[in-house]
Design a protein around this nucleic acid. Structure first.
Lengths: 120, 120
DNA sequence: CAAGTGTTATAGTTTTTATAGAACAGTTGC
DNA sequence: GCAACTGTTCTATAAAAACTATAACACTTG
């Protein structure tokens, strides 16, 4: 599990960490049953505080993507696999948006709002 | 131009305003050449500070979606029309994500990261 | 029982967001 | 020309969110 963050980004670190892990689930690099890196260990490797990583992990848990228990660590759930079903759509959308020169944050906000609305 | 915001949301107001306007561009409700509401006027109707609305407008300008000049106001650019090309993809992705019970913020982060990466 | 895990609590600093008021500088239309 | 309206810039403040730091706690595994 390789997590990358950009300290200079305006996106919160905990959000970047969660996003990086979600991307690995979509790509199939993280599959159900796989253990995530221990929070303390990941925090050290990213040179970030333990709580920042834990917040990312808890965000993923709220989304049903990981199971967490003290002593056992964080483990990817079956829901992590269903994420892969979105892969082709996301790739296609990204491709078109890139061709239009659309900034990532703008497209993300667009998708977020679309999903938030009751009907499309 | 109808702008809706949710004061209780965790999404910043300026981001919601920009998002609402982008959504109108995707839907074709705002077309190139259309004038956006004057910042002071929109701020008053949303009961929000002038600077908050201006920040949203300037965000859209940085994305090339609007032209702004003092005295003349904010006007949608040709880029606002190309946004509509993304409509079907966004709708389809939202539909699938909703079926998977995916939270809007999680999907948004996924799309954002996908677009940010050099290659898919 | 020891080592490793997430959990909780408290505290403090930094950054971001949002507000407020004022003055400035272009544009438009009378 | 000028009055009204536009975004722009500036200073200042308050509130909220993000991040760090430290410590203690509780469950799991070997």
């Amino acid at each position: 599990m390789l997590v990358r963050i950009d300290p200079g980004s305006d996106v919160p670190i905990f959000d970047q960490v969660a996003g990086s892990i979600r991307a690995d689930m979509v790509a199939g690099h993280i599959r159900p049953g796989d253990k995530l890196a221990p929070a303390r260990e990941l925090a050290a490797s990213l040179q970030v505080n333990l709580h920042t990583v834990l917040r990312a992990y808890q965000l993923l848990r709220e989304e049903g993507l990981v199971d967490m228990r003290r002593g056992r660590g964080a483990v990817a759930t079956p829901a992590a696999a269903t994420l892969g079903e979105l892969r082709s759509e996301i790739v296609e959308l990204s491709r078109k948006a890139r061709a239009l020169g659309m900034p990532p944050d703008a497209l993300a906000a667009l998708v977020r709002d679309s999903l938030r609305l009751d009907a499309d």
